[in-house]
Amino acid sequence: MNENTPKHPIHGLMAEFDTPEQLAAAAERVKNDGYQHYDAYMPFPVEAVEDQMPKRGPYLGWLILIAGLCGMFSGLGLQTYIAVYYFPMNIGGRPNFSWPQFIPITFELSILFAAGTAVFGMILLNGLPRPYHPVFNVDRFERASNDRFFICVESEDPKFDMEKTRDLLASMNPLSLSEVPY
């Protein structure tokens, strides 16, 4: 988003609904109308709504898998390097490369890397932390974390048109319809 030259004076139009089912239906209509830049806001995850969002790839899962494998190799590599090359020790005649004894740490590091990636990957891919966002400017949006379900069609969208978009959202009988200022 280029903040210097906004195409529209507002961030988008936001409609408020009472139930997740209504939100899912609304999102479906917005999607079918050909919009690409819109987002839904809800107090708990609803798969039916998520399915109506513009598609984004299953990126996080792969990141986690790769991180887990990195953890595995670094765990095994660390132990092998230290125990075999850097600081070999004779422990009761066991071989320097005691692979059964290396399993636990290898496992732990795989988990650590994968779990860390899952959390930080999720946060960063979501563009968080981000204390300011235009949607917070709508007063009623406070209830997005409580019991209301919102959809916001963003002005970035090439199809966005103050009148038409407003009509579309209004036709869904929202509890409220508001402009979202920057």
Partner: peptide, 11 residues
């Protein structure tokens, strides 16, 4: 962290 309950985020 500025969580706003976006559907994309929830996913």
């Amino acid at each position: 962290l500025g969580w706003r309950g976006s559907a994309q985020h929830w996913r």
